[in-house]
Simulated assay, not measured.
Amino acid sequence: MKKSLIALAALSAVAGSANAQTSVTLYGVIDTGIEYVNRVATAPTTLSPSLTGVAPVGKRFDMNGNGGLSASRWGLRGVEDLGGGLKAIFTLESQFTPDTGAFAGNTGIFNRQAYVGLSNQYGKIAFGKQYSSLAEGMLNFSPTRAAPAYEPGVWWLGINYRPANTIKYKGEFGALSAAAHYSFGAGVGLTSLSTGGALYNGGAGETPGAHRDDTAWGASVSYLNDQFGLGIGYDQWNPAATVGNPGKVRKAGIAGSYSFGPAKLMAGYRWGDQTYANGRTAMRDDYWFAGVSYRVNAALDLQLAYFYSNIKQLALSNSSAPINPANPQQVSFVADYAFSKRTDVYLTTAWAHNGSLANDGPFTGYLFNYAQAPGQKNMVGALVGIRHVF
């Protein structure tokens, strides 16, 4: 009996040691609220030359499903210590709309991130669906912290900012971070521009005999400490509307931040060039942003941001004549009050001119349901919401 007790104690010690080396964390965010938007149209099924939405047009008062400050999501992340400083890692993350409980975009369960990899003191290498290198290098400089309601984040980083079928390296060395990735098929299933000369369509990639279809790659480097930050990055995606005929979407960005006392300044620039498979320009644009955040006290944080897009050239198909549309610009304001580290309430508002909120349109896949009404010059939105982090 005594020997049995000793053996049981030994087995328990081994099991406890194994459990101490492995951890799995459940985490998530739920964010929703009540929103008012004026002069908004429904997303179009076909595009007009003005790139605007279609009827019905008018005011909208409803519950926001995209989130005001954060996209609602839940996930699992795990790590296992393999010894010698080497660890196995994984992340599975799912985005959903809290107003209905449905998966965002009617996509698969782990639609946000799904990867497995290895890490050590020199960084980590991961395989699967994960953030692009440009997103890794730029998101720390977002004026409203990549709030999905009214910041043009998808316009900034591209709809391929979370490519599938991706191998990525990321290393963190004190305040310095570096990332590089390659996608064998970005897997973005959104259609942009007209079907007669689409720039990107199904986005499946990994096609036999057409190895460049929907591939993507990029790299970034950033430096961020308590006072100063600077990031630079590049992203290229080769979307194929038809097999063997990839276009090209290229983006390069630089951004920085400076903190002093309770205030933080942020600014950045993104160059963009998108071309059809025949080499004709689909869109050439420059995107600028600037913002300031101010910590009033331990609970209240204020953010003010300005976004400007200079659309130099735009062609609705690979054979149409280029146009030079009016340049969209937007002002956004956020007041965020924290009850605790996990729960806060907020007011976020925005005014857009010569476009729709968050630059929502064909080049963002109408992801945020802010289609611009025909003939309009201005759009205003306001959202009062609550967010809980777990």
Rank of each mutant, 00 (worst) to 15 (best):
A149G: 02
R250K: 10
M283L: 05
A210V: 02
R284K: 04
S133N: 12
V243C: 08
K251T: 06
G117V: 02
A13H: 04
R284H: 02
K2Y: 04
D344Q: 13
A241L: 07
Q21R: 09
L92Q: 01
S317W: 07
L86N: 07
T46R: 00
I254K: 07
Y287V: 14
Y36S: 08
W288H: 13
E206F: 13
Y258R: 12
N324H: 02
L157I: 14
L367R: 15
G84M: 12
E206H: 11
K2P: 00
S133Q: 15
V54P: 00
A240D: 06
A252R: 08
K59G: 13
T348W: 07
A204E: 15
N324W: 03
F339W: 13
E172Y: 05
T195G: 14
T144Y: 15
A216R: 00
L86Y: 12
A219F: 15
F184K: 02
T100Y: 08
F339R: 03
T22N: 12
M266W: 13
D81K: 15
N201C: 04
L304Y: 09
S192I: 06
A15W: 04
T52L: 02
R387E: 11
G67I: 03
N297A: 03
S319K: 14
Y161R: 13
G75C: 12
A326D: 02
K170D: 08
A186E: 06
Q95T: 07
V380P: 08
G196E: 14
R250C: 04
V57F: 09
S222P: 07
A282K: 02
A164H: 13
M138K: 10
S309C: 04
E172I: 12
N64G: 00
A20I: 08
A135Q: 08
G196N: 09
P44Y: 01
V249W: 07
T46F: 01
D273L: 09
T281W: 03
S119V: 03
P143A: 12
A13P: 01
M379N: 11
N19S: 13
E80Q: 10
G53W: 00
A277P: 14
M138C: 10
K3D: 14
R387K: 14
G196F: 07
A373I: 05
S192R: 04
L190N: 07
P98Y: 00
A298W: 13
S320N: 13
I323Y: 01
I34P: 06
G123T: 00
G153D: 09
G108F: 14
S133P: 11
G361E: 00
D285V: 00
G128V: 10
G355W: 04
L199E: 05
S94M: 09
T364P: 01
S340N: 12
V384T: 14
Y269L: 11
A350M: 15
A352N: 10
G209L: 14
G128P: 14
A299W: 05
S94K: 05
G189Y: 15
W156Y: 10
L357P: 06
L199F: 04
G185P: 05
Y150F: 12
